[in-house]
Design a protein around this nucleic acid. Structure first.
Length: 110
DNA sequence: GAGGTGACGACCC
DNA sequence: TGGGTCGCCACCT
């Protein structure tokens, strides 16, 4: 039953990220109880765009606020989407990252 | 069934 | 300070 894998759990969290906010792979992993599983979170994002559901994978970046996944999402597509949500990106890096950071551990607190 | 890989992160020299 | 290594979970060969 409720055999929600780490993988699927990631999607549930990512889908809850409000527009104009971003989070990190590690934050999601930590929220799910496996802080060291950030790699798996990234892998989930890779598969997310294959899903029917809309997963705002562009709102998930690494801990530096760097758009490391842009190559998979679309070179300028990812940055375009983020800028469209009011974020300022320079050199593939989100400016004021902390100010736009959405921490599931703090916002969801389940 | 076993080994290698990956949109990361933390630790160790 | 910076480069190298391990860990974690799921997928592919």
């Amino acid at each position: 039953m409720d055999k929600y894998t780490f993988f699927e759990n990631v999607f549930e969290v990512v889908k809850q990220i409000p527009a104009g906010k971003v989070t990190s792979y590690g934050a999601i992993a930590k929220y799910l109880g496996s802080a060291k599983s950030s790699r798996t979170v990234g892998y989930a994002m890779n598969a997310s765009h294959l899903l029917i559901e809309k997963i705002p994978a562009h709102r998930v970046v690494n801990r530096n606020g760097l758009l490391t996944g842009k190559h998979h999402f679309g070179e300028n597509k990812m940055q375009q989407l983020l800028e469209n949500e009011g974020l300022n990106i320079i050199n593939d890096q989100i400016q004021n990252f902390e100010n736009h950071f959405w921490d599931p551990n703090r916002e969801l607190m389940i």
